[in-house]
Structure formats: structure tokens, C-alpha cells
Simulated assay, not measured.
Amino acid sequence: MSTTKLPPSSIPIFTTVASYREWRRKAYAEKKSVGFVPTMGALHEGHLSLVRRSLAENDLTVMSIFVNPAQFAPHEDLASYPRTLERDLELLAEQKVASKQPSAVFLPNVHEMYPSGINQDVNQQRGTFVEVKGYGEQMEGKSRPTFFRGVATVVTKLFNAIEPTNAYFGQKDIQQALLLRHMVTDLLLSHPSPNNLHIVPTIRDTSDDLALSSRNAYLSPAGRKVAPILYASLRTAEGCWAAGGSKLDCINAATKIIQRRIEQANEEGLDVEMKLDYLEMNDAGDFEVIEGDVTRSSKGDAAVILSGALWVDQTRLIDNILLGSVGRIVR
């Protein structure tokens, strides 16, 4: 375990797979369960809620902090992604549930995670990568074509290294979490098993329901003022769906909410640029787009993902609401 150039921490930090595995073998020998929360750092209450869930349900809890180059396209914000390690470790040390506190932090460097090297350009990459075919091209995959390849690869590596009994992901990244359940199932992973990959409801700002995200730090004051409109538009679509409206009617109603807020921002003289990326309804099982004339009654209890992405200046915000029978999704 190396502490070179690391901030002080009351929680053990492991920077290599070898050092972590020595610690993990002891947990195996003592028959202790290990909960795992993978993150890219810049922690907020959403991350910490996952940590507390793990503390409540496991003997030991591990968090990883690793900004994964493979899930950033060459034009995306890898270099500027917020890195707040000292504060992250302080926040993590403050978490406590029934006398249990986080047990370890896995803090690898890029070479440790990608021994063959890594290039953000997929065409220049060498080594082993994981793709979940048929599930990574819809929704977020349309806007970020290489994103889920990078996510699936790094999470496979993390699961192999950490060997968690349970793993915890937030609903805000619902497609990512469900895709990882498919991956765990297809690759016959035991740590975690598909049933032990938990999706936890999105944590929101109590003042305006904005989904908490590390990228919210990028927002200007004007951007922060308009950002909650994405969730408000999804709530409009949710109400339309519940009232028996068609998918097309509900998405149109939500889109009008966004368009009207853009107009209001201009009228208010706010120095902010907003652009809707998408609003859509997709089947929660295979991520296929729901047909435009489908209604709640014709869809039955099948789980549906109502999601959207909105650019606020240079910050891309995502959010979602789950419709229908979702008890087996968020648990």
C-alpha cells in the first residue's frame, strides 16, 4: 500500500490491485461481506448515500476513486473533470452507520487499471475491452457512442479486483446500471451476482429537485438556475403518461416545457445557452424505443425508462424517471 503524495486519511488507501487483494483475502478468511461503491471522485451526497447503504448491508465497505479515460471521447472533459481527492477522503471518513465506517479506498492510477495503456480514441486502443452488444447503442449510447464500452471495461476490471459481495449504483445513470446487470449476467460473474448489483434512487437537491452530479460543479449561477427544468419536463411527461396520454403526446408536452424555459431565460436576460439533446421513453429490459402511439394501458406493467439529456452551456445534464413496475429494477 503506497501513500506517496496522498492526502492524510483515516481510511486505508490501496493504490495497487496486489495490495488490495491481500486485504481482500483476509476478509474472505473472516467470512465478511464486502460492499462496493465505484466512483470517479468529486463526491456528493448521491455517492455518500450509496456508501451508507453499503455500510448498513455489509460487514466491510470499499469505495473506488478512478477517473476512467476509456469512457471519455477525445472531445469530452477528461482533463477538466473535477478532482477533489482530499475533500473526498474527508467526506468518506465522516460516514458512519451503526458504528460501521468505510473500510478501504481503492485508488489506482491509469497504468494499474490499463497495463497495456489507454487512448481516448477507440481506434488507437490496444488491449482487452468489454462491450455489451445490443444494449449500449440506444439512449445515452446514441449521443456517446464509445461511452458504455469504456464503462463496461472499467467496471469489469473493478469487479475483478474488488470482488464485492454487493455493489451499489445510482438510478441517475439508469442505463449504465442496467447494462452492467446484463454484463454481470452474461459474463457469469459471482462478485457481485446480478441480484447483488443494487440500483439506488437518485438523490436530489432539496431546494429544486436537481439530480446531484459531479458535473453540476461546472454550472454557472445562471446555468444552475435553469438546470432543474430537465427534471420538471420529465415530471410533466410522467403526469401525461399516468393520465393515459400516448408516448408521443407525453414527450411533446415535456419538450414544450424545455422550449418555454429557453424562451424565459432569454426574456430574463440570463447569460446561458440551453439545448435539448433528447427526451425519450425506452423499454427498461432491452432499451428499445417505445412506439409513439403506445399508452400506459397498452404497455401494461412493463417497466419504462423516461429519460432526457440537456446541454446547459458546456455542461450536459442527464436525468430519468422510471414508469410502470420497477420494483425489480431499483432495489
Rank of each mutant, 00 (worst) to 15 (best):
P38Q: 09
S307G: 15
F72L: 05
H182D: 06
M281V: 05
I251H: 06
I257S: 01
V122R: 15
F66W: 03
P201S: 06
R25D: 11
A253W: 02
W23T: 12
T156F: 09
L189P: 06
F72N: 11
D77P: 01
A217T: 13
G141T: 10
A243Q: 14
T16E: 12
F66V: 14
P8I: 10
S325C: 03
N320G: 07
D293A: 10
R126H: 11
A222E: 14
R316D: 11
G46V: 02
S190G: 13
A242C: 04
P12Q: 03
D301A: 13
T255L: 00
A211L: 05
E86M: 03
F106C: 06
T4C: 07
R261N: 05
I229M: 03
D313I: 03
V122N: 07
L91N: 07
D286S: 09
R181N: 09
N119L: 12
A302C: 07
R316Q: 12
M63Q: 08
R53K: 15
P108L: 06
N166Y: 10
A303V: 01
L78K: 08
A237P: 07
E280Y: 08
E137K: 15
V200S: 09
E94P: 01
G292Y: 10
S213L: 00
R181S: 07
A309Y: 10
A56E: 13
K26H: 10
L60R: 15
I199T: 10
G292P: 04
V17Y: 02
R126I: 12
L317K: 07
L317S: 10
L234C: 09
K133E: 13
E238G: 00
A98K: 12
I118T: 07
H182P: 05
L50E: 08
A70P: 03
P38V: 06
A177N: 07
N109F: 13
L107Q: 07
N160Y: 03
V151Y: 11
A303N: 04
L6C: 04
L85A: 00
M183I: 10
K247A: 13
A152E: 05
T295R: 09
A217E: 08
R296V: 06
L188I: 11
K256S: 05
V294R: 12
V130P: 05
